[in-house]
Amino acid sequence: MSHQGVKRFLRKKNAVIGATIVIMVCFIAVFAPLLSPYHYAHGDLNDALLGIGEDSRYLLGTDHCGRDMLSRVLFGARISLLVGIIAQLANTVIGGTLGIVGGFYGRVWDDIIMFVTNVTLSIPVLIFALALMALLGPGLHNLFIALGITNWCGTCRLARSKTLSVKEENYVEAAQAIGCSNLRMLFKHILPNSIMPIIVIGTLGIGDAILIAASLGFLGLGAQPPLPEWGSMLSTGRNYFFNAPWLSILPGVAILVTVLGFNLLGDGLRDLIDPHTKKLTK
């Protein structure tokens, strides 16, 4: 990003708010053990179900096992960030590779890849991920896989259309004329010139990945207790919904803030590289 670009980014209030939230959440995730008063699995049954502010030792109250909610929410940032980022990395690599290959080689390759994309696209991501989690079994690692191989269609389409337009550029024609190999053209010209939008759509997808992971956790098919995954915390909180609503409120707020941060940041980045959408949303 050039100096100009940084300036333009900073002028966008939303993007700056988003970036701040994301940096904060990352900070919390990295330093969770230092920031939390307790370990996320440490609980004392004598202190079970204390409300917010009811006991000075537990700022945000405790859950049914007497575990400190503040610590659990802070540690939860680790899981959600990890899931969002790893899943989106995988999706970006899969979608980007397929899209660029399809766009560059065209013909049968393109047809096959577009067919696979359209078929995958017709199965909603949450449903596909649900089925895969049923196959793989619940757990954090399986969550990475289930989310990392289902949500790449948007990236693939974007990478393909970007590749198609870059392919028409003069410098690609010139490279072809001097006898560049296909691989060299792919890595020296096509990839560097189409990578930015792919990265941006990847960032925009992190929020969705976190939401889907939370939904799976809520259904009992995501990360398993005692891991403090926000979605599964919500699902446990539901059992104490009427007596201890904070167990359901807090993880939800955490999800909302985190996803909001990524969405604002992604929107800002998209405006930065795509003047057309900037015009539309102004």
Binding site: N14, G207, L211, A214, S215, F218, G231, L234, R238, F241, F242, P245, S248, I249, G252, I255, L256, V259, L260, N263, L264, D267
Partner: peptide, 21 residues
Amino acid sequence: IVGVSVPEFWVGLMLMLVVAV
């Protein structure tokens, strides 16, 4: 922007808590 950032089931739970309960 909040709408696309919030899990549906949480909105449901909060609506239930406020409107129904």
